Computed example of a mutant assay.
Amino acid sequence: MKWSITQLRKFQDKPFEFHHTVKFDHLVETLDLIDLSEINVDGELTVKSNEVIADIYIKGTYTMPCARTLVPVNVPLDIYSQEVFDLEGYEQFGSDDEEDEHYHDASDGMINLKDIAEELVIIEKPMRVVSEDSDQMLTEGNGWEVIDEEQAAEIANENDDEDASSQKVDPRLQKLQQLYDKE
């Protein structure tokens, strides 16, 4: 996904279309992914007098662990970006202005979209995903179970009733209770 400016000047009258498939396997571990599919990078390059405008469409699929259940979840990646390459030396912005992230220097005579596509794949990755089935996740296990607020209130009421009944004197200690009654 690298072209020379001389090569692109041949397409001055019409846009240069491109279709590439790229593997970014090195990003799987870096981004804590289970898998990253092949990335399809399509688009067109339009050559102007002092700049090249790249319209880029990136499609692929992240496979990420569900934040609740750790089940693999496929997350679609669908990005559009427009990048501008300055052919005369990146003098667009002064030192006081912020640099535009979509504006790149191409004074070396080359347009390289692979690094830009990789950066967009990194930026667009969601922080976390939740699978559709996560609501039906495990609700009980060995010695525990998930209960709702109503069930918790019922259990609390039962415990209060047990506390009240436990205040009754144990029949084995009935004789001792009689000693206190006499006083």
Rank of each mutant, 00 (worst) to 15 (best):
H104R: 06
E51L: 03
D100V: 12
D97N: 10
Q136M: 13
N74Q: 13
N74H: 15
R68E: 14
D105R: 08
E132F: 10
V73H: 02
K125Y: 01
P65D: 10
V52G: 01
F85Q: 02
V73I: 14
A117M: 09
V47M: 06
A117F: 08
S81P: 05
Y103K: 00
V52C: 01
D55R: 12
D96V: 05
I56H: 00
D86N: 05
A106Y: 11
G60R: 02
I123W: 04
Q136C: 03
I53C: 00
S49P: 14
D115C: 07
T61V: 07
A67Q: 12
G143M: 10
I79L: 08
S131R: 06
D86F: 07
N50I: 13
P126A: 02
E98F: 00
D133M: 12
E99F: 01
Y103P: 02
P72T: 01
G94A: 03
Y57H: 11
M64K: 01
V47N: 00
G60E: 11
L87I: 05
E145H: 12
E124T: 07
V129R: 05
Y57P: 00
I116G: 01
A54P: 00
R68Y: 02
T69G: 11
L120C: 00
E145F: 05
L138K: 03
E132G: 08
N112D: 15
I111R: 04
G89N: 13
D105L: 07
E83P: 11
E88N: 14
R68M: 12
E132A: 13
E140Q: 15
V52T: 08
G109E: 05
I53V: 12
E98A: 04
D135H: 05
L87S: 10
D148P: 07
Q82S: 13
M110Y: 15
V84N: 09
I147Q: 15
E91P: 00
I111C: 07
R68S: 07
Y62D: 01
Y80C: 09
W144M: 14
E140V: 03
E88G: 04
D96H: 06
E99I: 06
I123Q: 02
G109R: 09
G94I: 09
E132K: 11
D55T: 07
